[in-house]
Amino acid sequence: MTHKELIADLSSSLSISENEIAELLDTTFTMMADEMSKGKSVHMQGFGTFEPHRKEERLTINPRTKVQTLIPPKQVVVFKPNQTLKDKAKEAPRYE
């Protein structure tokens, strides 16, 4: 399903214009990203939780050139599906 199809789908089932749906989606995602960058997690009931995880800085060594590099800390998004969604996925046919 492409982005356009998703918008069309939502628009028809909610009877809101496609333009508005696109705007709503955009604001929702920017708001989520904004809050997660502040360290807050977003809990979506019936789906799962988006959590920001902080990765500490670390030293890496290039095995070929032996150059040590300090990788700065960063914050990444982790999605944890809720239990019902996990169970449903387990029951779903094999995806390989």
Binding site: A33, V67, K74
Partner: peptide, 22 residues
């Protein structure tokens, strides 16, 4: 876009190479 927005607090940091004998 999502990844970069969430990583905003650490955006300005870049990997630093340290030359040091292992």
């Amino acid at each position: 876009s999502m990844r970069e927005a969430v990583n905003k607090p650490f955006e300005h940091l870049e990997p630093i190479a340290i030359n040091k004998e292992t």
